[in-house]
Design a protein around this nucleic acid. Structure first.
Lengths: 143, 143
DNA sequence: AGGGATTGGTTCGAGGCTCGAAGTATCTGG
DNA sequence: CCAGATACTTCGAGCCTCGAACCAATCCCT
């Protein structure tokens, strides 16, 4: 039966997520971050073009007011900076500060050290990422 | 490098969790449930002995006051019943009502229909559950 | 048996998270 | 130029989570 296997997959994914969150809680607090702010910080890749608020809200599955609230905290904390997008001045793009880059890297580092996924070997991990990717991709037809 | 693969695994796990939560939001609302109450309801398996508050709190990675708060909502909603454990009357065990069983089943059914994991085939799903299980098990030495 | 320490739950109050409604600034199409 | 749409913010309400304080039952040690 696929059904019980599917339920097991959802349950295991949930459990892993909760355990990871639980384990990094203390590290986040050390950096003055909450789960919500840490998640938002993680979502800003310093190697990509700074995303707009709208883009970020989609990425985080939250709405605009919520993201404004969270971004205000990160701004107050000096980890990100908002600036108007010259191409469309309604839009505001969010960029990491130097401090933001450092804290983000530290949070990711700590997470990778503490997450239960770290238990898996290299091959298993690759296999796992492949499977999770298949679940996520809507239609991975070749470009 | 394991590092980037590990990061991808954590990110995919997070993304899958968020997407699943996002998609079942409306169904939960139809049943008068919030994310927190739904999660708690899910955690009570009707085929197992009714868990104590302490057991449930551990299962949900929350503390006692929080669980009391959530359980009050489920109780008010008529989905669970609390009763003293005869073996240790400090402890209170939580059992699903008939209605609770029905709603729980409906929520799980809807989740399995909507989760991105449903995209995967039977073999992939089994493989995935196996990998996630390996990450979770602290030490799966044979009994 | 008696009494202090421990444990399981609850209540209460504070603070964080999320959302809908309303408002401002900017862009777009006619 | 103006009406409508879009990106964002502010505000207020409600939900979620936690620590502190409290109660009741159990345990342990003498």
């Amino acid at each position: 039966m696929t059904r019980s296997t599917l339920e097991a997959a959802v349950a295991a994914n949930h459990e892993l997520f909760m355990q990871t969150g639980d384990r990094i809680e203390a590290v986040l607090a050390e950096h003055g971050l909450t789960p919500a702010t840490a998640q938002a910080l993680w979502a800003i890749d310093p190697d990509q073009a700074p995303p707009s608020m709208k883009t970020l809200a989609g990425r985080l599955y939250c709405n605009a007011p919520n993201l404004s609230f969270v971004m205000n905290q990160l701004t107050d904390r000096g980890l990100v900076e908002r600036s108007a997008d010259p191409a469309d001045r309604r839009s505001r793009v969010v960029a990491l500060t130097d401090d933001g880059r450092r804290v983000r890297a530290a949070v990711i580092e700590a997470t990778l050290a503490l997450t239960p996924f770290a238990r898996l070997g290299d091959d298993e991990l690759r296999q796992l990422v492949d499977l999770l990717g298949k679940a996520l991709d809507p239609a991975p037809e070749g470009a």
